[in-house]
Design a protein around this nucleic acid. Structure first.
Length: 591
DNA sequence: CAACTTATCT
DNA sequence: CAGATAAGTT
């Protein structure tokens, strides 16, 4: 069974077919734009609920479970009915929903990510936490990684594909196999079995010959490992030690150019055919650093800027409207930070809101936020090195007020945490899973909040900085809310964040930033399949959603002119009205 | 004692 | 059996 992560689909129009498809794919929500602050609040609860649920599950079936009241969502007035389209109440039993267990399937993708991380870390440094960190897979826990690591070290994990194709060798004294000789010493940090895509049988043979556990069965293993172990322990400082490996290898930007030249283009083709316009890619000259950057004193940041532009390029390339020149200007402006509301307004005269407009707006915002944030110092903190924190930080200015999330006081990141406090719905009080400063909760939270934030930010930025009304006055409503704009905003946001926080990005851990940005065509792309967010313009719904890998995609924006129709929204995935109610109920428990 | 590894459970 | 969880170790 495929376990989808949660994601939300946002569309210009409601379309039953699309909704159904996406929901079947595991989407929790299908939203029709525009969505407003209330929706954001709702989405936030979404995250909250997940966390609470997690905590509850952790506490065992203990309390609360049967106390869960089903609250009517309207009582909490968290969600505008118009924005969130839930199905009719299906008679899904409450418990069924609540009980839905977190079961992480190690898909090929996830596993290869795992292996990638492992290789990156290298022998002797493969610790669950580090792997988790490098993997940067939202939702994944250390324990899960550890468990998987164990399996892989023993070489007794089979990919789903393998499982399917390879029948179990029945008979053959295999009855109680899978017993590795129990070594008397522990394998600290050792790499898992490396071979990949090896048919089971061969592997099995291999295993016999070489011994299941250790690559060097005949050597004086004890010595080797003893030695290694001690040195490892000395070396192991989870964040710091690992750092050098992140940069470069995991740098999402390092391969950006290739992407554009090859992969992305390829992917675009079908869409563009549909559009019936010349292939925008051809015109994306802004990939060239020179045409993008004003090449001033940006020295080392160039790489990042370039990468960002590539990302943008990919984004823009789906737009029929935006000209390269505009993009170039945008980029330059991004960089020069000369953008202001006036500037923006000028651009807004275009009928179709040019990306530039949006981008600039966003940039300003980020600027502002950044200035506020004292990010330089902030970024230096190793734990803040996660790109998601950038956005997370921004959230402080946008979030609904009155929330009271627990702070890990006295941590180095009080500021950040404090800011987080403002995010939740009023009265919310989130327990920390581990009671530690940095644990899985923290990690997960970052992810979740990021997503919410981006959603939030996308629309709220307008309000916050240039004023929603002002924006409104200049823009056609629909246009403004178009995915194109949204997408660009986000891309730019991140771009700016990227550009501004060069130091930040010099942290190797920033390599996960690619996860944040997803080109419109990212859906299904190998490179970006694990993005947190996907933006897709002119999404071709004939495109087989089955080909889309939604793992780790939390928010998927799809845009296409579709005839609107009534919301049917009977979900087959069990997350409908009941789900919603539960959530609210959860919240009230924490009020 | 948090994080690791290993063992056991479901 | 894959993955979660408990138990043992450092």
């Amino acid at each position: 069974m495929t376990v989808w992560n949660n994601f939300t689909v946002v569309c210009d129009e409601f379309d039953e077919l699309v909704a159904k498809k996406t929901l079947e794919k595991g989407a929790y929500l299908y939203l029709k734009k525009p969505f407003d602050e209330n929706l954001v609040k709702y989405l936030w609860q979404f995250v909250l609920r997940k966390r609470i649920e997690k905590n509850k599950a952790k506490e065992g079936s203990k309390i609360h479970r049967d106390q869960m009241k089903i609250a009517d969502i309207s009582d909490n007035d968290m969600v505008g009915e118009n924005e969130v389209q839930f199905g009719k109440k299906k008679d899904v039993s409450n418990s069924e929903v609540v009980r839905r267990k977190d079961y992480t399937e190690w898909t090929d993708d996830l596993h290869s990510k795992f292996m990638k991380a492992v290789k990156q870390l290298g022998e002797g440094r493969c610790y669950p936490k580090a792997i988790l960190y490098v993997m940067n897979s939202p939702g994944l826990t250390r324990m899960q990684v550890a468990s998987h690591l164990q399996k892989c070290r023993r070489n007794n994990w089979r990919s789903p594909k393998e499982r399917k194709h390879i029948r179990r060798p029945s008979g053959q004294g295999s009855s109680s196999v899978s017993h590795e000789p129990k070594s008397s010493f522990r394998k600290f940090g050792t790499m898992p079995y490396l071979q990949e895509n090896v048919p089971n049988q061969q592997r099995y043979q291999d295993q016999i010959q070489r011994g299941p556990e250790f690559p060097l069965p005949t050597l004086n293993i004890n010595n080797i490992f003893a030695q290694e172990e001690s040195s490892i322990q000395q070396l192991y400082h989870p964040q710091l030690q690992v750092q050098p490996h992140y940069l470069g290898i995991g740098n999402p930007f390092s391969s950006a150019q290739n992407n554009i030249g090859g992969e992305l283009k390829q992917q675009h083709t079908p869409f563009f055919g549909m559009l019936g316009s010349q292939d925008p890619i051809m015109r994306n000259t802004h990939y060239r650093p020179n045409s993008v950057l004003n090449s001033e004193d940006h020295h080392s940041e160039k790489d990042y800027n370039f990468a960002l532009n590539v990302t943008k390029g990919a984004t823009y390339s789906c737009s029929r409207i935006v000209s390269d020149t505009d993009i170039g200007n945008t980029t330059m402006n991004d960089y020069n930070l000369n953008v202001n509301v006036n500037n923006v307004t000028t651009y807004s005269s275009t009928t179709m809101m040019p990306n530039t407009y949006v981008g600039n707006v966003t940039i300003n915002e980020l600027r502002a936020t950044n200035a506020n944030a004292n990010f330089q110092q902030y970024a230096r903190e190793q734990n803040m090195s996660d790109p998601r924190n950038i956005v997370d930080y921004l959230f402080q200015n946008l979030g609904p007020s009155g929330a009271n999330l627990p702070n890990e006081q006295d941590s180095d990141f009080d500021q950040v945490y404090s800011d987080d406090q403002n995010l939740g719905p009023s009265g919310a009080n989130l327990p920390n899973e581990q009671g530690s400063d940095f644990d899985q909760v923290y990690f997960d939270d970052q992810h979740n909040i990021l997503c919410i934030l981006n959603i939030y930010g996308i629309h709220f930025y307008y309000c916050a900085h240039i004023g929603f009304q002002e924006y409104w006055d200049h823009k056609d409503y629909n246009t403004m809310m178009s995915d194109t704009n949204v997408g660009n905003v986000t891309v730019n946001e991140l771009g700016v964040a990227n550009a501004n926080f060069e130091e930040y990005f010099s942290e190797q851990n920033m390599s996960g930033s690619s996860n944040i940005i997803a080109a419109p065509d990212a859906v299904g792309s190998n490179e970006k399949e694990n993005c947190d967010m996907c933006f897709d313009f002119d999404f071709d719904f004939d495109f087989d959603l089955n080909d889309v890998n939604f793992d780790n995609v939390d928010f998927l924006f799809l845009s296409q002119e579709l005839p609107s129709c009534d919301l049917p929204n009977e979900q087959s995935n069990g997350f409908d009205q009941t789900y919603c109610d539960n959530q609210v109920s959860d919240l009230s428990n924490f009020a």
